[in-house]
């Protein structure tokens, strides 16, 4: 039971950040992650359209499989934080919300960060490390 990978997709489907959260995480190249990011973005949008109930939070929140769970948290501005984890991992939604907080602190408040652009911030990486440390997964 471990968190595997984190990726962040901006509102137009571009991957702006991805990283492994543990050494169990499968090694996938950045190009593949870019593809996964934009594919997930489209699926998320289609799922929202296909939903029979027009709920406030549409799109994909959770995909469960035998070997993997994928959890997504979409913010008001359309940025999606997605974590993949091994089945049975708990508190993923909490972790996602904490990562959202770290994103607002370390990226949005950084005068040198451009909106919708890749996050290359040491502060953000460290903040995510801290969160991972707190939720017991190194």
């Amino acid at each position: 039971m471990a968190y595997l990978h984190l990726f962040i997709v901006n509102k137009s489907g571009g991957l702006i950040h991805h990283r492994a959260l543990s050494h169990h995480a499968p090694q996938i190249g950045t190009n593949e992650w870019l593809r996964i990011g934009s594919t997930f973005h489209s699926l998320h949008a289609i799922a929202g359209e296909a939903s029979p109930v027009k709920a406030k939070h549409d799109g994909i929140e959770l995909i469960e499989g035998e070997g993997l769970i994928l959890c997504c948290f979409q913010t008001r501005t359309g940025i999606k934080f997605v974590i993949t984890a091994e089945p049975g991992t708990r508190f993923i939604q909490n972790v996602l919300k904490e990562i959202y907080v770290a994103y607002t602190d370390c990226a949005l408040k950084d005068p040198f960060y451009e909106l919708e652009m890749p996050i290359r911030s040491d502060l953000f990486s460290e903040a995510v490390n801290d969160i991972m440390g707190r939720f017991g997964n190194r």
């Binding site: 602190d105 370390c106 408040k109 950084d110 005068p111 040198f112 290359r120 911030s121 040491d122 502060l123 953000f124």
Partner: peptide
């Protein structure tokens, strides 16, 4: 420069 990662001195 609390929230800055690079160019702290500039900030």
């Amino acid at each position: 420069s609390n929230f800055v990662s690079v160019n702290k001195a500039v900030s």
